[in-house]
Simulated assay, not measured.
Amino acid sequence: MSARSPFVRSLYIALAALCFALGLAGVFLPLLPTTPLMLLAVALASKGSTRFALWIRANRFAGPAITAWEQEQAIPRRAKVTAVIMIVISAVVMALIIEALWLRIGLLAGLSTIALFIVTRRSPRRR
């Protein structure tokens, strides 16, 4: 099947819509990563519907972070702070709930790596 077939295009659009919806839910749920889901939504929408991809980029909530990442591989300061706060909350909750030490250490190491990646990205230039 080619990327131009209606089925494949519809699949890309459906997956993009799912990622976008999960990204929006991630604004309120600490364990769902909003920005990566929005970036995936744009990538999928770009293959299925240019109009949908443009709409996501123009979205007042997701658009600026997506554009900053696409153009500069930068993460806005507010997004960094929010992400790190959510990661810390998630880490504390997991540390309190998970009993298996090896799993707790592995998850905390993974979350720490993600937080370090986020913090070390530059902030977008002012325009």
Rank of each mutant, 00 (worst) to 15 (best):
L44D: 01
I98L: 15
R51G: 08
A21H: 07
L103F: 15
A53L: 00
I87A: 07
F61V: 15
L103G: 08
T82A: 15
V42E: 02
A3P: 05
R127H: 13
P6W: 05
K80P: 03
L54P: 02
V8G: 08
A21I: 14
L11Y: 00
A68N: 05
I66R: 07
A115P: 02
S90W: 06
A3T: 08
I87E: 01
S5G: 14
R104V: 04
P33S: 12
P124L: 07
P33N: 08
R104N: 02
I66V: 15
T113A: 15
R78H: 13
A62E: 06
A21P: 07
G48Y: 00
A74T: 05
K47D: 03
F117C: 03
L44A: 00
L18D: 06
A68P: 04
A68G: 05
A95T: 11
S49P: 08
W55D: 08
A14G: 05
A53C: 04
L24Q: 04
I66T: 07
A43D: 04
A16P: 00
A21R: 05
L54N: 13
R127C: 09
A45E: 01
A17W: 02
L37M: 15
F61C: 13
F28C: 04
R122M: 08
I56Y: 03
I85K: 08
A43G: 10
C19N: 14
P76S: 05
S123R: 10
P30F: 14
L18N: 07
F117W: 11
R121L: 00
L103T: 13
I114W: 14
R51W: 09
V81R: 13
T67E: 12
S2W: 06
A14Q: 01
W55N: 07
I114E: 00
N59P: 08
I13P: 04
L108C: 14
S90M: 10
V42R: 02
T113N: 09
W102I: 04
A68S: 11
L40R: 01
M38S: 04
L15D: 01
I75G: 10
I13F: 02
I75V: 15
M86D: 02
S90E: 12
A95N: 11
S46V: 01
G110V: 03
P124R: 06
I56K: 01
R125D: 12
V93H: 06
L108W: 07
E70Y: 04
R60S: 12
L18G: 11
M94V: 03
E99D: 15
A65H: 13
A43T: 10
W102T: 04
V84A: 11
A41P: 10
M38P: 05
A65F: 12
Q73C: 07
R121Q: 08
R57C: 15
A41W: 06
I118H: 01
A83M: 00
K80M: 03
T82Y: 10
R57Y: 10
V8P: 09
S90F: 10
S123C: 09
Q73D: 06
L37C: 14
M38W: 15
L40K: 02
T34M: 03
R78D: 12
G63H: 11
S123H: 06
A41Q: 06
A68V: 02
I118V: 09
V81K: 12
A16F: 01
P33M: 12
